[in-house]
Design a protein around this nucleic acid. Structure first.
Length: 895
DNA sequence: TACAATTGCAA
DNA sequence: TATTGCAATTGTA
């Protein structure tokens, strides 16, 4: 026989619990002065009840002000009741708002009391075969107790409850629960102004009922009452007894039009609830609804009912539903496979977010089929696709080369655009932020460090919970994220730039760049030898062996043993950075050796060894990851390895670029924007001097030097130019005299003079910078050319350092961010044009203002043209965008 | 094993 | 006390 799952209905007596909570708790208000104690107490009791009862259905019943049939029957009904205090009355509506947000069924009807609704619901549920739990602070509802229905009455305080079933009732009251209404009929109820029989209290009433059973019997056989005085009382108030019983009887057959299914209980917590809790300052309750994800709890149990896809038919059914509903949400658990590529471990799919399927990819069955569906969905513009991290999905499923139609909605990127300053955009963070809820984390699923599980060792239950939670989350968050993008006017940035860019980045990652491994090996040997020599020499000169990599030990040797003058301190000891060492260069023969050691080890460990360790064995190429949701300004970042910080400034470092090569017979086309940030500054500030300079193709730093040093361009010396260059950079970064003095090794006063001269000459720049700071202060954020936003809360800080930092961000972000906007547009266009022109050439690298394309020789010419055009026309500014372009077989020669 | 601190590479 | 990043290494919790 199949196991019957017992369904449970929880009914809350709304007014009664609210009253209890109000009088049980001291007054509480939030900072707006709203009273909150009753709501807080109510919710505490509600959570407690849900926890104990574990219902799958629930309803909350309320009274309305309107008179009920009981008033018609007995005009004195509930007369003399104290009016509800204002402080309580004002809490009813907010509570109802919360209950609605929780998706709890709220029931109230004119002409009936909450008790009657509760009774009716209870009987309906019983006849559906359900069990019922009623929570109230009012003992009247005890009459509803049956074998199927238990009643929980709050004790003193708000967390303790007495639970009544028929036995417990009889034990306490000495009569069967069916006689409860007779008891009330005899006793009356002063709080409801129900008369009963005067002089008959609980003791007497119980005794009478034990003897006669019901009021009707008692009245019929009143002759048999032995106590003469009591008999007189009963006979004298027969009508009152009958009326009182009638008033006390809860009606259980109100015609209510609802199905049990309407009462189905979902997740109580969601963004709306969290927001309401935040408004009311229910911090402990907020924590409660974001309690650690317990994937084994009842709460999420039904979600585990998503079946596993084990047949082709299931996959076909999924696709059928996708076609029918024209949408699909999916999420893939990925891992790095033996070849070093992201690959699917398992995935889940849903149409409506409530139910779906999950697919185990580990044994390979149906993976190809699932992949085929994903390809089909990606290619169908009419199907709405909701995902998290599309770039990873594309790579994991091996669909990078597959063309797409109709932009998918990527909640990760959407969240980033809405607030680019967050620390993380994984679904763990998303869930916490928007739902106030925890999901099974990656750490929890995989374990960490040496204990990290293999794919085959994953806990199945945890894995399914992981998939289901996340897939449902993506589905649930999509509308809200979309709405916010629209509100912030970033839909176009999202649809036309960021989303297509995700596809381009996926291609770049999987394409990679070739390394000349043999050359790199040569470097390795040369560097190892030289470093070894240097270590020996340093130890000899120092007269002691120590770890040269340790700043602590080095500081000890330099400033204690060798008695060199300490130049600068860090918070933990002596500073030994390059600026310090440069100042000591002539003080001791050890210093130049250390400087060379530093330079060589930097290159060897980070670049030579680092790159050798990460070359893909299969392709012989480097496949960096381009992060689209890391930099708060909108830039892309590169990691594992970082290809955006390959040395170029020193000759020795620069040589390293020879190992980055085009594939056999092909060429690298390197195109970089000339002075893009200063051009953007010219555009944004509208400064006539700058605009003119760029229109005339002047050397901008020389021109700046001529302006601020008041000389002709011909007489600008190299030193003047580099000072001007430093000032130009400083301006972009949000200048300070201290920063510039540090950078140029000049006095702060001198730096101040440079800056003042500059801002005097370029007054529009000053106006523009001031405007950005003011705007950030007033609105809380700044924006870029394409409406990318960045909030700057620091700008109103009382802390000087923090505030200053905020001001520099306000000045720099529109410039750096707009440059990011522009090159992103260019990348999308380049990739698009290459595809349209059927070129073999592909974009393989981006370094903020530089794009590198790998092309076969016959395509170099047309692709160079296409590349330059796409980049120079990526934005229409009041100054031209200029691109420098160069072609070679390796990155060193292409620069 | 995880994290902070220092250092240094790029735009 | 100049903007945005990533990473190697040491040393400590």
């Amino acid at each position: 026989m199949p196991e019957q799952i017992q369904r449970k209905l929880l009914i809350i007596d709304g007014n009664s619990l609210l009253n209890r909570a109000f009088y049980a708790l001291p007054p509480l208000t939030n900072r707006d002065g709203e009273h909150t104690n009753a709501i807080y107490g109510f919710l505490t009791m509600l959570f407690k009840a849900v926890e104990e009862v574990k219902p799958d259905h629930a309803a909350v019943a309320f009274d309305l002000k309107a008179p009920t049939f009981r008033h018609d029957t007995y005009t004195e009904y509930k007369a003399g009741r104290k009016k509800m205090p204002m402080e309580l009355a004002e809490q009813i509506e907010p509570l109802k708002e919360i209950l609605d947000a929780m998706g709890l069924y709220r029931i109230q009807m004119e002409g009936f009391e909450a008790d009657d609704l509760i009774g009716t619901l209870a009987r309906m549920a019983e006849s559906d075969g359900m069990t019922v739990a009623i929570v109230s602070g009012d003992r009247d509802v005890l009459q509803l107790v049956t074998e199927q229905t238990q009643v929980m009455i709050t004790k003193k305080g708000i967390t303790q409850m007495d639970v009544y079933d028929p036995d417990r009732f009889t034990e306490e009251y000495g009569i069967p629960v069916e006689r409860f209404i007779d008891l009330k009929g005899l006793m009356g109820d002063s709080s409801d102004n129900i008369p009963g029989i005067p002089g008959v209290g609980p003791k007497t009433a119980t005794k009478l009922l034990q003897e006669f059973g019901t009021i009707e019997n008692l009245l019929e056989q009143s002759e048999a009452i032995s106590n003469k005085k009591l008999k007189e009382k009963v006979d004298g108030h027969r009508q009152e007894a009958v009326l009182s019983k009638k008033l006390a009887t809860i009606i259980t057959n109100i015609p209510i039009e609802l199905k049990m299914d309407d009462l189905r209980l979902g997740e109580l917590s969601n963004p709306e609830v969290a927001a309401l809790f935040r408004r009311l300052e229910f911090n402990s309750l907020l924590e409660r609804i974001s309690a650690p994800a317990d994937f084994k709890s009842e709460k999420t149990a039904d979600k585990h009912l998503w079946p596993e896809m084990t047949t082709i038919e299931a996959l076909q059914e999924l696709d059928g539903q996708v076609q029918q509903h024209q949408e699909i949400t999916w999420y893939t658990l990925t891992d790095t496979n033996a070849e070093g590529w992201p690959s699917p471990v398992a995935a889940a799919f849903t149409i409506d977010g409530n139910t779906g399927w999950w697919l185990d990819c580990r044994n390979g069955s149906y993976v190809a089929l699932a992949r085929a569906w994903i390809i089909k969905w990606l290619g169908d513009p009419s199907i709405l696709k909701k995902v998290h991290d599309l770039k990873l999905e594309k790579r994991a499923w091996g669909t990078v080369q597959i063309p797409f139609n109709g932009a998918p909605f990527d909640v990760m990127i959407a969240d980033y655009l809405i607030n680019p300053s967050k620390a993380a955009y994984d679904l763990e963070a998303l869930s916490l932020h928007y739902d106030g809820q925890k999901v099974v984390t990656s750490k929890e699923l995989w374990g960490t460090g040496l204990k990290r599980k293999k794919q085959t060792e994953l806990d199945m239950e945890a894995m399914v919970a992981y998939l289901v939670q996340r897939t449902a989350l993506i589905h649930r968050l999509t509308p809200e994220l979309k709405r916010q993008l629209q509100e912030l006017e970033m839909l176009s940035l999202y649809e036309s730039v960021e989303m297509p860019l995700a596809f381009v980045l996926a291609e770049m990652e999987s394409e990679g760049i070739e390394l000349d491994a043999a050359l790199l090996k040569d470097f390795e040997i040369t560097y190892a030898k030289r470093i070894d020599d240097l270590i020996k020499q340093v130890h000899e000169v120092a007269g002691t062996e120590f770890n040269l990599n340790s700043t602590k030990q080095l500081g000890e040797v330099l400033f204690v043993r060798l008695n060199l003058p300490p130049v600068k301190k860090t918070k933990t000891g002596y500073s030994t950075d390059v600026a310090v060492l440069e100042k000591l260069k002539n003080e001791h023969a050890i210093i130049p050796l250390i400087l060379e050691y530093r330079q060589m080890t930097k290159i060897k460990s980070t670049y030579i060894d680092g790159l050798l360790a990460i070359v893909n064995a299969g392709t012989g190429r480097i496949h960096s990851t381009f992060h689209q949701t890391v930099a708060a300004t909108g830039r892309i970042s590169s990691a594992d390895p970082n290809l955006q910080n390959i040395p170029v400034r020193t000759e020795m470092g620069r040589q390293l670029r020879r190992v980055f090569v085009a594939r056999e017979g092909w060429q690298l086309i390197d195109a970089d924007y000339s002075q893009i940030e200063l051009r953007i500054m010219a555009h944004l500030s509208g400064d006539p001097g700058f605009i003119k300079a760029f229109k005339e193709e002047a050397d901008i730093h020389t021109r700046t030097a001529a302006e601020i040093f008041q000389v002709s361009e011909e007489s600008v010396t190299g030193e003047m130019r580099s000072s001007a260059k430093a000032v130009n950079f400083g301006i972009i970064y949000g200048i300070s005299d201290f920063g510039l003095s540090n950078n140029l090794n000049i006095s702060r006063q001198q730096a101040r003079l440079y800056i003042d001269d500059y801002l005097h000459r370029y007054a529009s720049v000053k106006t523009y910078m001031d405007e950005m700071v003011t705007r950030a202060r007033d609105k809380g954020y700044v924006t870029t050319l394409l409406h990318r936003i960045r909030y700057i809360p620091e700008i109103n800080s009382k802390n000087f350092n923090l505030r200053s930092f905020g001001e520099r961000m306000a000045m720099n972000t529109p410039i750096q961010g707009s440059a990011a906007d522009i090159i992103k547009v260019a990348m999308v266009r380049v990739a698009d044009e290459l595809k349209k022109g059927n070129y073999q050439a592909r974009l393989i690298l981006q370094v903020h203002d530089e794009l590198i394309v790998e092309a076969p020789p016959e395509e170099v010419e047309p692709v160079s043209l296409l590349l330059r055009q796409a980049m120079e026309e990526a934005a229409e500014l009041s100054v031209p965008l200029k691109v420098d372009l160069s072609v070679a077989t390796n990155w060193f020669d292409a620069k």
